[in-house]
């Protein structure tokens, strides 16, 4: 077993369709793997390549492409090296295989992603339990289309007496009003 991440990837490339490989820095490699092979690939990294630590898992919302990109940040304690495994999933058909059997704390991440992004991980323990939110009935709030400002505006009010003035507009009104009427 080699500790060199590049040769690990080379070796795994024979069995997996690895793409978008990028060495962000000496101790962080980014790559992408198809959804179907992802969990098997991650298991292989954990069991076969010593990437035994799941630092976190999360998702990036590429709303404009209709994609959620999951990130699994794995760490190899011996080599002091991280691999970020990316998996694209459909933003509408948001389902992904669970990894709670690989790491216990993954279940908590999956619970959070279900709540905050609406991604389902079938079989993940207590998946539908509330994580942070109680009685939330809007769209999952971390999705990019959820607009925090308008949500707040609908429910709260601004402090009274708060009015601001634009310096440029203010100077125009007072210093040169007639030089700006339209032609």
């Amino acid at each position: 077993m080699s500790n060199d991440p590049k040769s690990i990837i080379e070796e795994l490339s024979d069995h997996y369709q690895i793409s978008e490989i990028k060495e962000q820095k000496a101790d962080l490699l980014l790559l992408k793997i198809p959804k179907e092979d992802a969990v098997q690939f991650i298991r292989e990294l954990r069991d076969g390549q010593n990437y035994t630590h799941l630092a976190f898992m999360t998702v990036i919302d590429y709303i404009e492409s209709g994609i959620f990109t999951l990130t699994y940040m794995l760490h190899n304690y011996a080599a002091h090296h991280n691999i970020a495994v990316h998996v694209d999933i459909d933003r509408e058909q948001t389902e992904m295989e669970s990894i709670h059997e690989l790491w216990v704390h993954a279940a908590t991440y999956q619970r959070e992603l279900r709540e905050m992004y609406g991604i389902r991980f079938p079989g993940s323990p207590r998946l539908d339990d509330d994580f942070c939110l109680e009685g939330w009935d809007e769209i999952p709030p971390m999705r990019r289309e959820f607009d925090t400002v308008s949500y707040s505006r609908e429910r709260f009010f601004d402090r009274e007496g708060r009015i601001t003035t634009d310096p440029r507009e203010h100077m125009k009104q007072i210093m040169y009003p007639i030089h700006t009427d339209n032609d």
């Binding site: 976190f56 999360t58 998702v59 990036i60 919302d61 990130t71 704390h105 991440y109």
Partner: peptide, 23 residues
């Protein structure tokens, strides 16, 4: 840990804050 994703704009695309308390 801080996991940052940028998209070339003036804003972050995503930030994930990884704290040990999570687990």
């Amino acid at each position: 840990g801080y996991y940052l994703v940028t998209d070339g704009s003036q804003y972050l695309r995503r930030v994930h804050v990884r704290g040990p308390s999570y687990t």
